[in-house]
Deep mutational scan, measured.
Amino acid sequence: KITVTFNGEEKARRYYKKMQKHNLKVEIRVENNQWVVHVE
């Protein structure tokens, strides 16, 4: 499981979509004013 933190929504969403293309289970959320993407 990987957790990647971004300081911008745009970058986070781009990464999220990229990971989805690989058929990975991805989850995006905001934690402590940071955009966090969890990849299983």
Score class of each variant (00 low, 15 high):
residue 5 T to G: 04
residue 13 R to I: 13
residue 35 W to I: 03
residue 36 V to S: 04
residue 37 V to K: 00
residue 35 W to C: 00
residue 4 V to D: 01
residue 9 E to F: 13
residue 18 K to P: 01
residue 30 V to D: 03
residue 8 G to W: 09
residue 38 H to T: 15
residue 4 V to M: 11
residue 12 A to C: 04
residue 7 N to V: 10
residue 40 E to P: 05
residue 29 R to D: 06
residue 11 K to G: 15
residue 34 Q to K: 14
residue 18 K to A: 14
residue 32 N to D: 09
residue 32 N to A: 07
residue 26 V to A: 07
residue 5 T to K: 12
residue 35 W to E: 00
residue 39 V to G: 01
residue 7 N to W: 10
residue 34 Q to W: 07
residue 15 Y to K: 02
residue 21 K to H: 10
residue 9 E to C: 07
residue 27 E to N: 07
residue 4 V to E: 03
residue 14 R to W: 11
residue 15 Y to I: 02
residue 12 A to S: 02
residue 1 K to H: 13
residue 5 T to N: 06
residue 25 K to I: 10
residue 21 K to I: 09
residue 33 N to V: 03
residue 16 Y to A: 15
residue 19 M to H: 03
residue 6 F to M: 02
residue 2 I to K: 08
residue 30 V to A: 08
residue 13 R to C: 13
residue 33 N to S: 08
residue 9 E to M: 11
residue 27 E to P: 00
residue 33 N to T: 05
residue 13 R to L: 14
residue 7 N to D: 15
residue 3 T to H: 05
residue 13 R to P: 03
residue 10 E to K: 12
residue 26 V to E: 00
residue 11 K to W: 11
residue 35 W to D: 00
residue 6 F to N: 01
residue 29 R to N: 06
residue 24 L to I: 09
residue 6 F to G: 01
residue 11 K to I: 12
residue 23 N to V: 04
residue 27 E to F: 09
residue 37 V to E: 01
residue 10 E to M: 09
residue 25 K to R: 11
residue 12 A to E: 02
residue 35 W to M: 01
residue 35 W to H: 01
residue 38 H to Q: 13
residue 31 E to C: 08
residue 36 V to I: 11
residue 6 F to H: 01
residue 38 H to V: 15
residue 4 V to Q: 05
residue 5 T to M: 11
residue 25 K to F: 08
residue 17 K to A: 13
residue 5 T to S: 08
residue 32 N to K: 07
residue 11 K to R: 12
residue 9 E to S: 05
residue 17 K to V: 11
residue 27 E to R: 04
residue 22 H to G: 07
residue 28 I to P: 00
residue 25 K to H: 11
residue 31 E to N: 05
residue 22 H to R: 13
residue 6 F to Q: 01
residue 32 N to Q: 06
residue 14 R to L: 13
residue 27 E to C: 09
residue 15 Y to W: 07
residue 27 E to L: 06
residue 36 V to T: 07
residue 1 K to I: 12
residue 16 Y to G: 05
residue 37 V to P: 00
residue 16 Y to F: 12
residue 14 R to E: 15
residue 30 V to C: 11
residue 39 V to C: 04
residue 7 N to K: 11
residue 7 N to M: 10
residue 34 Q to P: 00
residue 24 L to Y: 14
residue 26 V to F: 02
residue 33 N to I: 03
residue 18 K to F: 14
residue 11 K to M: 15
residue 22 H to Q: 14
residue 13 R to G: 03
residue 8 G to M: 14
residue 13 R to T: 07
residue 12 A to L: 03
residue 2 I to F: 15
residue 39 V to K: 01
residue 22 H to N: 10
residue 5 T to W: 13
residue 20 Q to N: 05
residue 25 K to V: 09
residue 39 V to D: 00
residue 8 G to K: 15
residue 31 E to S: 06
residue 2 I to E: 04
residue 31 E to L: 09
residue 19 M to A: 07
residue 4 V to F: 09
residue 12 A to I: 03
residue 36 V to R: 02
residue 9 E to V: 08
residue 25 K to Y: 10
residue 30 V to S: 07
residue 36 V to Y: 06
residue 4 V to W: 05
residue 29 R to A: 12
residue 37 V to L: 03
residue 28 I to S: 00
residue 2 I to M: 10
residue 23 N to F: 13
residue 25 K to A: 08
residue 4 V to R: 09
residue 15 Y to D: 02
residue 18 K to H: 13
residue 11 K to C: 14
residue 24 L to M: 11
residue 28 I to Q: 00
residue 16 Y to L: 11
residue 27 E to I: 10
residue 11 K to N: 15
residue 2 I to A: 05
residue 7 N to I: 08
residue 27 E to D: 08
residue 3 T to E: 06
residue 13 R to E: 06
residue 28 I to W: 02
residue 17 K to I: 13
residue 27 E to M: 07
residue 37 V to A: 01
residue 35 W to T: 01
residue 12 A to F: 05
residue 12 A to W: 03
residue 7 N to F: 09
residue 22 H to W: 10
residue 16 Y to E: 04
residue 40 E to Q: 11
residue 40 E to K: 06
residue 24 L to E: 04
residue 7 N to G: 08
residue 14 R to Q: 14
residue 22 H to F: 11
residue 3 T to W: 05
residue 39 V to R: 01
residue 18 K to S: 10
residue 6 F to D: 01
residue 21 K to S: 13
residue 12 A to H: 03
residue 31 E to G: 03
residue 4 V to S: 03
residue 4 V to P: 01
residue 34 Q to S: 08
residue 32 N to E: 07
